[in-house]
Design a protein around this nucleic acid. Structure first.
Length: 283
DNA sequence: AAGTGGACCTGCTAGC
DNA sequence: TGCTAGCAGGTCCACT
């Protein structure tokens, strides 16, 4: 479910409500991608700060308080959360009983933040700060935010220089730009008229500018639509996106291109499906 | 250094 | 109706 827009919509949906809450308990289900890395007792009594997003990660600061004596050196810590392929977060005052896919709960005096994640590729990891391990390592390879003022054609062109991987895979790699996953990478390449098989380093400057703009457009549209991808995305209050974003190519193999009518093709790149229009998108 | 493939895990669907 | 193969929104790691 979660590419950048979904993660951002999730963050916005619970950040104001949970900020300032006090941690009462932490409950764990089955193991996620990595262990939490801290004893639950060390989180109890902390105050929740302002949730931030970096790429597809959410950083939830948990500040030590006076009521929690004995840990004066731990004030900068927090939880780094990732939704993986199938994760979703819900913050509710009175959550229903935990189900078989609920694997993390932060119980606070204002409600419960719950991670539901059937496939368990998601993660919730304690870190003493963003700049130290393990958060620093996880965030180290992440590229620019697509809405960053520094993210533009020349930057993208430069970042892809010399790369022989297909441009689709270069987008997914996330070390140049973060945020576009399999769906939005396909959509952006269609908008930019770029064949996903083109070597990233072969992208001309003008086309890099087009692609940068297309990435911003696609992710921005999805964000405005409430992070609604193709399936039933819900924010942390369980509210679905206001309407379903209409995919231009993703998941439309064999269906007519919305621009030229040519059947959309599906190929596999790096073990992931890619959808594109063989006429509108050029090498 | 950059590219590739495997790994992690469960659920759903299309097809027989 | 029931079983199976294939597919799914991510990304880290080991290896060439």
């Amino acid at each position: 479910m979660p590419e950048l827009p979904e993660v951002e919509v999730t963050r916005r949906s619970f950040a104001p409500a949970i900020a300032g809450a006090r941690v009462l308990d932490v409950r764990l289900g089955k193991p996620l991608r990595w262990p939490l890395g801290v004893a639950a007792e060390r989180l109890v009594g902390r105050r929740v700060g302002e949730a931030q997003r970096r790429g597809k990660y959410i950083w939830l600061p948990l500040v030590a308080t006076a009521e929690q004596p004995g840990h004066p050196d731990e004030s900068g810590g927090g939880l780094l959360l990732h939704l993986g392929m199938s994760g979703s977060l819900a913050f509710r005052e009175q959550p229903p009983a935990a189900g078989p896919h609920d694997h993390f709960e932060l119980v606070t005096d204002r409600g419960v933040l719950r991670l539901t994640d059937p496939r368990r590729f998601g993660a919730v990891v304690w870190s003493d700060g963003l700049a130290v391990e393990p958060a620093a390592k996880l965030l180290a390879r992440i590229g620019l935010e697509p809405f960053d003022i520094e993210f533009h054609g020349p930057y993208l062109h430069d970042g892809f220089r010399g790369r022989r991987v297909a441009v689709k895979q270069a987008i997914l790699a996330g070390d140049v730009v973060v945020g576009a996953g399999n769906i939005y990478a396909c959509e952006a390449l269609f908008l930019a008229g770029v064949d996903p098989r083109l070597a990233a380093g072969k992208l001309s400057r003008p086309r890099a500018a087009k692609l940068a703009a297309a990435l911003r457009q696609v992710l921005g549209e999805a964000l405005e639509a409430g992070g609604s991808t193709l399936r039933d995305f819900k924010d942390a209050h369980g509210v679905a996106g206001s309407f379903q974003m209409q995919a231009r190519v993703y998941g439309r193999e064999g269906e007519p291109c919305r621009a030229c009518g040519t059947p959309i093709r599906r190929i596999v790149q790096g073990q992931r499906s890619t959808f594109f229009c063989p006429v509108c998108q050029k090498r």
